[in-house]
């Protein structure tokens, strides 16, 4: 059983132009998939379709083996969490603890268990000291970590990040990206990350490139980012590590094509 299966999925907002055109995609359990592409390529629409906020024009969406319908929507959402782009517009509670509790309240978790779950989830995103803090006193990165905690509290199998780092400063971005990687590695949660940030895409196990509603490429970060023709056609930025490695190669220095900064440092240290 795969985490998410999309079959011939099409979607249109106005009934005329299709935002997504005949997308078929399989996301295996426990994988970390990054979806990249320009604005208007249909990335965020895809996320909203998977969580059932939008209804497809045609095609089917299977989440954990179940085809999404109006009837099982709530049951499916028990297993899927989503972190949106704007940190302010998804903070529902008046304090961190209340916000984490919101999802638990909706899922009728008994009151006596809530405090424990809230503390555990806050600890996982290092927000234990802020349980009584109000959203106005938190940074964007902290708010996004609270959003992640709110989802972890419901122990989902799939978490979708819909450009969750695009409104954050570099520090917030790094802390959230670190969090995403940790979740995927330690808890084997399937991650689907929609992102503009190529550094983040490079840490994924799979990259899907969307272009004007169709899948332009799919593969490991190494495969996708080293496809020079595709990258220059879509004018996508490369991760810094790869960009640097290419620059070294252009100067005749023999170095492996690396994906992230850590690998770059290692490769540079091994140069003779």
């Amino acid at each position: 059983m795969e985490a998410i299966e999309l079959e011939h999925l099409s979607f249109s907002y106005d009934g005329q132009t299709d935002v997504l055109k005949d997308i078929s995609l399989t996301i295996p359990k426990g994988s970390y998939t990054a979806i990249v592409g320009h604005n208007g390529s249909g990335k965020s629409t895809l996320a909203k379709l998977i969580i059932g906020l939008l209804e497809p024009k045609s095609g089917t969406i299977k989440v954990l083996g179940q085809t999404l319908t109006d009837h099982n929507l709530k049951a499916v959402r028990d297993h899927v969490g989503i972190v949106f782009q704007n940190p302010d517009n998804q903070f529902i509670g008046s304090t961190v603890a209340d916000d984490i509790a919101f999802g638990l309240e909706n899922h009728c978790v008994p009151t006596k268990d809530m405090q424990r779950i809230i503390e555990e989830s806050a600890a996982k995103v290092s927000m234990s000291d802020y349980l009584n803090a109000e959203p106005t006193n938190l940074s964007g990165g902290q708010k996004q970590r609270v959003a992640i905690a709110g989802i972890l509290a419901m122990s989902p199998e799939i978490i979708i990040f819909d450009e969750s780092t695009s409104m954050l400063d570099p520090q917030g971005k790094a802390s959230v990206n670190e969090q995403i990687r940790k979740l995927n590695e330690a808890k084997n949660i399937t991650i689907l990350s929609i992102t503009h940030d190529m550094e983040e895409a490079a840490q994924a196990s799979n990259v899907v490139v969307l272009d004007q509603g169709t899948i332009a490429a799919i593969g490991t970060p190494a495969d996708v980012f080293q496809n020079d023709a595709l990258m220059s056609r879509l004018r996508l930025d490369l991760p810094f590590g790869l960009k640097a490695a290419k620059a070294f190669q252009a100067h005749g220095i023999e170095i492996d094509a690396v994906m992230n900064n850590a690998q770059l440092v290692e490769a540079l240290c091994q140069l003779k």
Binding site: I51, I82, F102, G103, E105, N106, C108, V109, P110, G150
Partner: peptide, 16 residues
């Protein structure tokens, strides 16, 4: 965001 987190105004909820 509320809908994605399972909020349904007509359903019963527990309270924190």
């Amino acid at each position: 965001a509320m809908e994605a987190r399972g909020y349904d105004p007509s359903a019963t909820r527990t309270r924190y």
